[in-house]
């Protein structure tokens, strides 16, 4: 029964566009975006929640996938070729940069990934050869398959985004149950112990880093198809920080928490942007509201939404925290 529950859920999501309340193109587009970020957050959790690597540079791989897809398509490559090349580039860059960054541990690793990703942001902003469009971003000008063009086909984009999320979750599930996945969670809990067992934590961490990079690049490709183009925000460190917020809100290391966090965060971000402008003062800023919610969640709901069934009743039972 439990085994089929996720697939049932996927089926419900797949059939969602046939419901009256959801089949408006605007709604479908927002939902598709939520699904893309759900997949992206889940992929980021492979690093953070499952391997214990706090990368601040995940946006780089997302941006590589997104920008390269746009650029290659605009240079006459067919979508499948462009997507494949974009993802391969993500893999190669992740392998190269990961090999260097993983030479340091812990917080230093975080800072180094942040610095590497900054190069991506700089390149995007400088607009080399007019490829990235600088501040304006780059739009897909040609090569969009007919099935993905136009308002009537928004539903296909939605299904594409859903397929991406399913792919990410299936890959993560497979990895999690494989022997390598068990090594990863052992690394998260205690890297030294893995070293003692004669396994090289470095190689497993690098594998996790590259796989996460590939999933992010794939997410970038799907994102530009859904949105129609790439903007410099995709490469910014803020994007990685938002991914981190999504994962922590959802529940790092849990099976569906990060995806749920990603979808919910994206949904709220857009809804707040639309409706909160009338609110007084800082409440009009979605990032203020979400940032504060995030801080409160770190304090009061460790484990995020995935563990709220445990943490919330705990808080209701004892009003004051005991000092250990």
């Amino acid at each position: 029964m439990r085994r089929w529950l996720p697939w049932g859920l996927a089926l419900v999501l797949a059939l969602l566009p046939f419901g009256q309340a959801f089949n408006a193109p605007g709604t479908l587009n927002l939902l598709a975006l939520c699904l893309v970020f759900a997949g992206l957050a889940a992929g980021y959790d492979l690093l953070f929640g499952r391997t214990g690597l706090l990368s601040f540079g995940h946006a780089l791989y997302f941006a590589i996938g997104a920008y390269l897809t746009v650029i290659l398509m605009n240079h006459g490559f067919a979508l499948p070729v462009a997507a494949l090349l974009a993802i391969l580039s993500g893999v190669v860059v992740a392998a190269l940069l990961g090999a260097v960054a993983l030479r340091v541990d812990g917080i230093a690793f975080s800072m180094v990934t942040l610095a590497f990703a900054q190069v991506g942001a700089i390149i995007v902003a400088r607009d080399p050869g007019g490829l990235t469009g600088g501040e304006e971003g780059a739009t897909i000008a040609k090569g969009m398959p007919d099935a993905l063009v136009g308002v009537v086909n928004t539903v296909n984009l939605y299904w594409l985004a859903l397929a991406y999320l399913v792919v990410v979750l299936v890959v993560l599930h497979r990895v999690g149950r494989s022997p390598a996945g068990r090594v990863l969670s052992a690394i998260r809990d205690d890297a030294r112990r893995v070293g003692v067992l004669g396994l090289s934590p470095y190689r497993y961490k690098l594998m996790s880093f590259v796989l996460a990079g590939a999933l992010a690049a794939l997410g970038g490709t799907v994102y530009v198809l859904v949105v129609g183009g790439a903007s410099p925000h995709l490469a910014s460190s803020d994007l990685t920080l938002t991914l981190l917020v999504m994962v922590v809100l959802g529940g790092p290391g849990s099976r569906f928490g990060p995806a749920l966090g990603g979808a919910l965060f994206t949904f709220l971000d857009y809804q707040l942007t639309d409706y909160a402008t009338d609110l007084p003062g800082p409440l009009a800023q979605p990032m203020f509201v979400l940032g504060v919610v995030f801080i409160l969640a770190v304090y009061f709901f460790p484990g995020g939404l995935a563990r709220i069934g445990v943490t919330l009743p705990g808080w209701l039972r004892r009003p004051a925290r005991q000092e250990a």
Binding site: I107, L241, V245, P282, M287, G291
Partner: peptide, 28 residues
């Protein structure tokens, strides 16, 4: 201080603070 020795949570809180803080400055 309340998160003493919980390094990751401390980083997360400062991340949240940086996001919320910039937004607060923007609104003011």
């Amino acid at each position: 201080r309340p998160l003493y020795r919980r390094t990751i949570e401390q980083v997360l809180v400062t991340v949240g603070l940086s996001l919320a803080g910039v937004a607060l400055l923007q609104s003011v």
